[in-house]
Amino acid sequence: MFTSCAQPNAWHGHWQTSGTPNKASSSHASGSPSSAGLYYEQYGHETTTYIVARIAGWESDPARRLSYFSQAPDDLAFCYSAPAVAVWGSAPGLWGYRHRIVAVLHSLHGGDADAVLRRREDLRQLVAASSKTTPGNDWKTGFLIHAMGDSYAHVKPGPDGREVAYGQLVGHGFDNSVKPDHISAHFDTYRKYVTNLHAALAIHGGNAKELNRFLDAGGKAANIPDQSGREESVKETIQAFHPFDEVPFTELTAKDFDSWKHEIKDVDSFLRDLEKKLR
């Protein structure tokens, strides 16, 4: 299993169908691994990362790479997704890797409200530091962004109403009432995430006006009267908001994705080091 994870052998990217990347709307095309559900993993990670990076001053090409790698922990599912590793990582001798994937990479650490705030701030600082390094660290920055996004998504109200994190044993798999991955149900939390991600990625101060325009559009969609269509409305609003009228990934091919995925190496060592840096 670890041999297969050393070099991921499958990319289930939401931007490509039958090997050809399409516009952002194709991310929910038939056959996409996540087309059956409206979850944070799709537009909460991949599309949000691209948009925020562009608003923060990144050029389109590095923003595409960052977006790809921020989604990779969910799309390279067997090796790095919480549901898959939680199952096969429960075998004897694999618990350590399971812990690092579930509790560290996907922020299902089970901490109290103060631990949640510390985790978010630690990851914000780590994303900011990592994003200033060489392109060879793009996958690490993307993984850090994924962990940061999940530190906002994978929480629930505690006894005093403050946010506490889900634990690593079962995550939020049995908590459908809170819908932690639904942005429309927790838009204020999503707003905090986007604001802090922008701060972490900001080049030359970022673009507060454009950031507020993006968040205002999402906030309006999250407050539409139709409860059943609220999440779909938020999804469409986020996916339609491509700065400077860009549509990411239309010029990329399956060959590009295949090349990028092979940059991801020594994930367990990376997560071991990351865990030491998290309070």
Rank of each mutant, 00 (worst) to 15 (best):
T3H: 10
C5M: 04
A6S: 10
P8F: 15
A10D: 06
H12K: 10
G31Y: 11
G31L: 06
S32P: 01
Y39W: 04
Y40M: 05
G44R: 07
H45E: 00
R54S: 01
W58F: 15
P62N: 06
P62F: 11
A63H: 03
Y68E: 08
C79K: 08
V85Y: 02
V87Y: 02
W95C: 00
Y97C: 00
I101W: 01
V102L: 00
L108S: 02
A115T: 09
R119T: 14
R120S: 07
D122N: 15
V127M: 09
T134Q: 08
G136F: 15
A165Y: 13
G167R: 00
Q168C: 03
V170R: 08
G173A: 05
F174M: 09
D175Y: 11
N176F: 10
S177K: 13
Y193R: 01
A199W: 05
A199N: 15
A202P: 11
A202F: 07
G205P: 13
G205K: 14
E210H: 15
G218P: 05
N223V: 00
I224F: 09
Q227L: 08
S228G: 01
S228N: 12
T237I: 01
F241Y: 14
H242T: 12
D245N: 10
K255S: 13
K255V: 14
H262L: 09
K265H: 10
V267N: 05
